[in-house]
Computed example of a mutant assay.
Amino acid sequence: MNFVSKYTVVFLCIVLSGCAGMIRSVDQEQVESIRKVAVVSQLGNTFIGSLTATTVFGNKGYKVDASGWQVDRAITAAAVEAIQRGGRSALSLQSNAKLPELLKEATNNGADTLFLVTPAGYSNQPDFPPGYGFHRRVFLGIDRACIYSLFVTVAYDVKSGREIGQSWSFPKSEGAIPCEATAGIAWKDDFARYTKDERELIRKATIASVTTNIQTSVTGLGLTR
């Protein structure tokens, strides 16, 4: 299987089924051989507002360009910091290229391992769209809204291109997506309805979510102490 098809199959498997059995830490022997990690985040610039109601007729949602938030840069910076705390060298790469090009770029930067962060759906909690956003769930009197991020980090051996590990953006043992309530901000069905101050609070909560969860993901791969 070539690099492109391998990457596509892994991504689709995670999105469509959750692939719980495929999530695993890097083998300890492989961990010991890692010296430098290149980190790429392709979570993207789309902030998703989603409402899951008691029936599908009440569901609502929106998508908004959040490129100014620089979410991918925040993720890679947090990942690099976490990896370095584990005693290894790391660097961030800002790229939307496909896997073969990413492996070449990692090689050119002296990395032996590539961490690739991509959006991923979780079959046990399908109400949460892959990526990051503001989610609200209304069901039989229960009404909960929170900022979340949902992704997977896949580790590759740069020399062989072989996938050597995967980790969710939440602790595997807990099996639940972290969903942080945003105090004082109600979920709205149009991002334009938020005030400037509310948008800034949402941005900060989003950055906090992705940076916390990428550290969880790196830990899940076995590269932090």
Rank of each mutant, 00 (worst) to 15 (best):
W187N: 07
T153H: 06
C179Y: 10
A181S: 13
I75E: 00
T195F: 07
F151V: 13
V117G: 00
S50Y: 02
T76G: 09
T219V: 05
A38K: 13
A97R: 14
G161R: 07
L16A: 13
K159F: 00
A79I: 06
E101C: 05
K104I: 15
A82H: 01
S160H: 06
D27S: 14
V218C: 04
R193V: 09
V40C: 01
V26I: 15
S95I: 02
F3L: 13
W69I: 14
E32T: 10
Y148P: 05
R85P: 02
G49A: 04
G110M: 11
T46A: 13
P178I: 00
T211F: 05
F3K: 04
Q125K: 08
Q84P: 06
Y148W: 10
A97S: 14
I214G: 01
S92P: 07
L43Q: 07
R203A: 10
V158N: 04
F47K: 13
L102D: 01
N45E: 09
V40P: 00
R73D: 00
T76A: 15
K196M: 12
G49H: 06
E180Y: 09
D189N: 15
I14G: 08
E81V: 08
A208D: 14
F57M: 11
F128A: 03
K63V: 13
P130N: 01
Y156A: 02
L150K: 01
S92Y: 06
C179H: 11
R225I: 07
S17T: 15
A78D: 01
D189M: 09
N109C: 06
L91A: 13
T224G: 04
V154I: 12
G58E: 06
F11I: 08
G68A: 14
